[in-house]
Amino acid sequence: MAVDRRRVPGEVRAALFFLAPGLLVIGLFFLLPIAASVLLSLTDFDIYALGDVRNVRVVGLRNFSRLLADPLFWTSLRNTFYFVLVGGPLTLSVALAAALLLHSKLVRWKGLFRTIFFAPYITTLVAVAIVFRYLYHPRFGGLNRVLELFGIPAIDWLGNPKWAMPAIILLAVWKNFGYAMILFIAGLQAIPESLYEAARLDGAGRLQLFRRITVPMLAPTFLFLGVLTTIGYFQFFAEPYVMTGGGGPLNATLSTGLLMYKQGFRWWNMGYAAAIAVVLGLVILAFSALQFRIERRRNA
């Protein structure tokens, strides 16, 4: 014990030394800007303020009241919810289906299929968004060509306001399901086989096994992936930036993240953009909290 006490000051000094770089980076480049964002949203910081900070005025909640009256903001929010609420569940459904297939005892070459399904997740979003942009071309694109085989007439995927969002969601599902699939497979492997055997002895059918054992046992994975996918999808940005010329057609793919980028970094309305960022952040936090809440209620 005596040795311990003598050593403590040295260890505290060492801890300070080891923590300093990391905490400095996190504090200066993450925590400080987050706090500053809230303050920035209460000002009229714009291109004049960028030239001379003395041009900044505190405007209270005016940015927020402007935001609520801005139809473009509501459009972007609706698009973002469309993307999250359709794209998220779709991604996880495809992922779960793929995981169940690859978990089946009847399937061979599991490693190969796992690698193939996972490959899109590794790719660079901007690059594959450009690839899909060409695949969605109404005349030359590969997708319509495939649909034609089934007698489906050509669709102007990215040019039609009705189809642009589904097209972007399809890209997101293609690119992201592999990640969730890997975690679902890990979750499935963690379910003890004895649970299934016991239930089978009690005469449970296939569907019952799935509903009574598989789904509940995967609940933590569902929660983790649900929260993670929601957080990521709420911020979608590169897809409309690259594929639809910045949110077209007719703003059908304008996301809130893209609107924030345009307001802040293209038109330098940084106070207003900060208000958008704060609202988007609060929406994301609320959504994550909601999912934790649902999970806890289910457990109770």
């Binding site: 200066l28 987050i34 964002s37 924030m260 960022a277 952040g281 994301i284």
Partner: peptide, 14 residues
């Protein structure tokens, strides 16, 4: 749990 994009505008100014 705080989403990173909130930090982007002030981070740029910093």
């Amino acid at each position: 749990v705080i989403p990173a994009p909130i930090a982007m505008l002030p981070l740029f100014l910093l």
